[in-house]
């Protein structure tokens, strides 16, 4: 497997993931809550309602996404540093710890269930990603050599 040069090396990439996930959540939340606020407002106040929904909810969605992405990236880097290898299990283990850490205030049972759910989700993601890679990989084509020119009879 070749190294992924589109991502930065490990400690600094946590910052990148925090910001990327936050921006993704905030922009997605703007669209989502904009539509939701627009549809749930009475006629005549639809744009006001959409704007109010965006202002109150989109930053929260961004924050939730950002904390999840940043925690996941932190655990991913930690697992990489401990295991000293890069494979799909890193994501699964990091997902386990992320789910557990985010649910830790809900009690032991909630933490355990959330960790297992998150690990399974990440496992499915990794599995689907691998299958996509296999399906869309370019098959190796044998090189075509030109035919040997026919010998002229002397």
């Amino acid at each position: 497997m070749s190294a992924d040069h589109t991502r930065d090396p490990c400690p600094i990439v946590i910052l990148n993931d925090f910001g990327g996930a936050f921006a993704m959540g905030a922009i997605g939340g703007t669209v989502w809550h904009g539509i939701k606020g627009f549809r749930n407002s009475p006629y005549g106040e639809r744009f006001v309602g959409a704007s109010a929904a965006i202002r109150t909810r989109a930053p929260v969605v961004g924050g939730n996404f950002g904390v999840w992405g940043g925690l996941f990236s932190t655990f991913d880097c930690t697992v990489k540093a401990v295991r000293k290898r890069e494979d799909a299990w890193n994501a699964v283990i990091a997902g386990f710890f992320t789910g557990g850490a985010l649910a830790i205030r809900g009690g032991w049972k909630h933490t355990r269930n959330s960790a297992i759910t998150c690990a399974c989700l990440l496992g499915v993601f990794e599995g689907v990603g691998m299958m996509m890679q296999r399906v869309f990989a370019q098959p190796a084509v044998a090189p075509v050599y030109p035919d040997e020119p026919q010998r002229l009879a002397a």
Binding site: F18, G19, G66
Partner: peptide, 8 residues
Amino acid sequence: CYGTGAVY
């Protein structure tokens, strides 16, 4: 990403 992440 870096700017938002750092300030956040």
